[in-house]
Write a protein that binds this DNA or RNA. Structure first.
Lengths: 191, 191
DNA sequence: AAATCCACTTGATAAATGTTAGGAAATGAA
DNA sequence: TTCATTTCCTAACATTTATCAAGTGGATTT
């Protein structure tokens, strides 16, 4: 299972055998059925997760009690409430499995251990951070400049498998629109 | 002039006298009249800027040739096309002064020198990065969930001086709406 | 099989925002 | 100054998206 993680990291940096061993010793394999709450709002996020299989989302409840999905991720990707995990602050978000899923997880303390004992992982973590920054900047830009239909078209173009595995209500929320609007957009596109 | 920068950094980390000296040796003071293009699209961003006085924005041209403002900043803040500056990649954005302004700037090489020779600055730079990530994540969330009016109300509540110093067309673009929409919203709020 | 639930869709209508056009006020150049 | 340009605002109309209410079909329960 951990090979997926090693493979992903090796695409960005070169892991020595001892790095691989170190990595394997710090991550823990866990499984969840679909719709399980993995990390709950109101607490400090315990783990950073790497997705081996399945789909996972982050969501919170707005002032009207509506679920707002802020992130959806799939293999091979990391997911957690990053800022609150890194700074060990209380998060307002829930991490939930969308499908059955297999994950690797690492605690803040163990991640710290990993980064202290291997400059390679430290460099890699900075890269992940930069990518997350660029991703969020791009997402803000798209939300500001694209119409709901353009945002949906871009999503299915870049992540076609999301549609097969994630309920449309979650997709609608993630794209910043109502399920009814997404339903109409989908109907329009079919013709 | 550099005192503003030192003061800001000292709010987050404790700078020793030699850190202050090091910092002063790496930053350079520059001035620009209003509406000057400070960094131009199609090139690798040369400097990271710290704003001493004045307002600055980042913008690009979309496929229809419209200016899209992605960031607006004021003292005491940093501004550049972060991702492209850090990775020394070609940027699609222009950095422009909105008002007359006084800036401190540092090249990528000099920033590297600063981070290598002072762990304090290294820690500070990681904090700045984390804050930028949190900022972008929040901005994406607001763009996805708030109406144009709510976004404007939040802006003038959090940054009331922006309104006095930045043309409304830039503000409208930054908030992801047309100037006409912002004009209507402003009129509505007055009553 | 009937009842229930849930996700998704559909339709009618309302609200928000975009588009187009024009005009007043401020700004800059000759 | 005067003229031209730019910025900002306004209005009428078009389009997009939200809201509210209802219906469909599949899955689950009893």
């Amino acid at each position: 299972m951990i090979e997926e993680l090693i493979t992903l990291i090796n695409k960005s940096v070169n892991l020595a055998p001892q790095d691989v061993d170190l990595c394997m010793s710090q991550f823990e394999l866990v499984q969840f059925p679909h719709s399980a709450i993995i990390e709950v709002e109101g607490k400090v996020p315990t783990y950073l997760y790497f997705i081996i299989s399945g789909y996972v989302r982050l969501f919170y409840f707005d002032e009207k009690g509506n679920e707002i999905t802020t992130h959806i991720n799939c293999p091979p990707g990391f997911i957690t409430s990053y800022f609150n995990f890194i700074n060990q602050k209380v998060s307002a978000e829930n991490l939930q499995s969308i499908t059955d899923c297999t994950l690797l997880r690492i605690s803040k303390a163990n991640l710290g251990f990993l980064l202290e004992h291997s400059a390679v992982f430290k460099n890699y973590s900075i890269m992940v951070f930069e990518q997350a920054l660029a991703y969020n900047e791009n997402r803000a830009k798209e939300m500001a400049t694209l119409s709901a239909e353009q945002r949906y078209l871009k999503l299915i173009k870049n992540y076609p498998d999301v549609l097969k595995n994630v309920p449309v209500q979650y997709i609608a929320s993630f794209l910043g629109m109502k399920p009814e609007s997404l339903s109409r957009i989908r109907k329009k596109i079919l013709q």
